[in-house]
Amino acid sequence: MFSKSNLLATLTGGVAMFVLGYVLWGMLGETLNGDNVLNNVMKVEPDFIHLFFGCLISAFAMSTIYGKWARGHHSAKEGAEFGIWVGVFVGVGMGLIFFATSTMMNFTGHLIDAVLNIIYYLVIGIIIALIYKATSDKSKS
């Protein structure tokens, strides 16, 4: 769980989540979802400390699960597949639950958010997989 591969993938993935999250939701998502937001619950200024630690913890969870899921087969393709499934879980599954139980966005907003989640986790999955590939013990292969 605290292997070199996992810790480096966590750190790299956490930084990537922080930056990519800003690009996808802070810049692109705000533009795409402007008319689809029903109740804006966002803070004017995010709490960046807690945001970064949330990204780091999420990256640790993803990296740990990926390490068990991949079973030593690390590639961009494996990471993309893993990331897409995480994106479907969060973006589509949880998005439909949020749509059914809240009034944050209309259905179009949740669909846009689902696509952004799939892209986000696909990229993070690839990054985590490539870190695992670069740092894995070559003698075990």
Rank of each mutant, 00 (worst) to 15 (best):
C55H: 04
M104G: 04
E30F: 09
M17H: 11
V88A: 02
G14Y: 06
S75A: 00
R71G: 05
V90W: 10
I84M: 07
M27L: 15
A70W: 00
K133E: 13
I128L: 10
L24K: 15
L20R: 13
A100T: 06
L20T: 12
T64Y: 15
L20Q: 08
G91T: 07
V115K: 02
K68I: 09
K140L: 13
K138P: 05
L38S: 09
H110W: 14
H73A: 14
L56Q: 00
V15D: 00
D47M: 13
T101D: 04
N40L: 02
N33L: 13
Y121T: 13
V92Q: 05
K133L: 08
G34F: 10
I57H: 02
M94P: 00
G21P: 04
A129G: 05
G83S: 06
R71T: 06
S63T: 01
A114Y: 10
W25H: 12
I131P: 10
G125R: 03
V23D: 10
G67A: 09
M17R: 12
Y22R: 10
K133S: 05
T103F: 04
L130F: 09
T12C: 06
L28S: 03
A76I: 12
L38Q: 13
L7S: 06
G34K: 15
I97P: 03
G34D: 10
F18D: 06
T64A: 05
I112P: 04
G91L: 01
F53N: 03
P46Q: 12
V44R: 09
W85N: 11
M42F: 06
G26K: 07
Y120T: 04
V123A: 12
G72D: 00
G21D: 04
P46V: 14
M62K: 00
G79N: 08
L7W: 12
F53A: 06
T101C: 05
M27N: 14
F60Y: 14
I84L: 10
I118M: 12
A16P: 05
T135W: 02
N33V: 01
H73L: 10
M94I: 12
D137K: 15
F52V: 08
L96M: 14
